[in-house]
């Protein structure tokens, strides 16, 4: 095994071009587990620890640009938390403090696990993933990045360099159900993003399907039934909240597995979606 420690994106891309089979190591919280367990025995590893430009973020106008290796702890504790409260909430539920010190959103996306905590939030934010290779940069929506369980559209020589999404313009919520709240692969998770400027609602689910799932009908229903005012948003009819919950649940097609039955997952999603919208419209 060889280990490369590039210090720039360009150098990283050249390495990946020369050796597309290389394993990319960011925080290491996913990839190193596989290396240690030898599920995956890479001949070569490219470590991103020295690629400082990947670990930076910026807020430009209404857009957040999050470098792929910004650790969760940074998202929780910097101005990013105000710019993206939903992502900050999801980051808080990732692993333990040690994992949050090193784990990254880019790694979460590249792994493409259905249970990745930040993925539903990014899906609801309509986040765009900047993917680079020696051939140039391409952009892919988060919902299109992940195509199956731990399967993405990333080519072997490609690197996620950043994720872009709009600065919050309204309430954002992230909820999940598990045996307990944290450090558990959730039975189901739900992200809700309300954009007051555009008067739109976005809702995405995690852990219920191989790829992150958006709930279009429910989103339109909620947007149509929210009382959009200049000093906040309200839902006057409690039945609207219930209906929204069941519409989100209908969008999911959960399955029975060893963690949970489809029936419970569906019920849990309805409750979470309703609660997310309730919180968002009463805060």
């Amino acid at each position: 095994m060889t280990v490369s420690m590039p210090s720039s994106v360009d150098e990283t891309l050249r390495l990946l071009s020369d050796d597309p089979a290389a394993t990319i190591l960011a925080g290491g919280t996913d990839a190193m587990v596989e290396i240690n367990y030898e599920h995956r025995r890479p001949a070569s590893v490219v470590s991103l620890r020295r690629v400082n430009e990947l670990a930076t973020w910026s807020i430009d106008g209404g857009t957040v640009r999050l470098g792929a290796t910004v650790p969760y702890v940074e998202i929780m504790n910097s101005e990013l938390a105000a710019a993206s409260p939903g992502l900050a909430q999801a980051s808080r539920t990732v692993g333990s403090s040690q994992i949050r010190n090193t784990g990254t959103v880019g790694g979460n996306l590249a792994t493409g696990s259905p249970a990745g905590d930040t993925i539903p939030v990014l899906a609801a934010l309509d986040a765009i993933v900047e993917i680079a290779s020696v051939r140039g940069i391409r952009e892919v929506a988060v919902v299109d990045l992940i195509v199956g369980v731990k399967r993405t559209v990333l080519e072997p020589d490609e690197l996620i360099v950043a994720i872009r999404f709009p600065v919050a313009s309204g309430p954002q919520e992230f909820l999940k159900i598990g045996p307990r709240n944290a450090m558990v692969i959730s039975v189901a998770s739900c992200a809700l993003v309300i954009n007051q400027a555009e008067r739109s609602v976005a809702c995405a689910l995690g852990s219920v399907s191989p790829a992150p799932l958006r709930c279009g009908d429910a989103e339109e229903f909620a947007a149509a039934n929210i009382d959009w005012t200049s000093d906040g948003i309200r839902i006057t009819d409690p039945r609207t909240l219930e209906t929204f919950g069941s519409m989100v649940a209908d969008a999911a097609s959960p399955i029975d597995d060893h963690r949970s039955t489809a029936a419970y997952r569906k019920h849990g999603i309805a409750v979470m979606a309703r609660r997310a919208l309730t919180r968002a419209t009463t805060s």
Binding site: V3, M5, L25, G27, G28, T29, M32, V33, I35, N36, Y37, V45, S47, R49, G95, S96, S97, Q98, I99, N101, T102, M183
Partner: peptide
């Protein structure tokens, strides 16, 4: 464990608590 979640292998990496299970020595 090999996956770092027990934290028994914690070190301070540039002053931050991190699990040395999931860091290559080369890094």
């Amino acid at each position: 464990s090999a996956s770092g979640e027990t934290g028994a292998a914690a070190v301070l990496f540039d002053g931050k608590l991190a699990s040395s299970d999931v860091i290559l020595a080369a890094q």
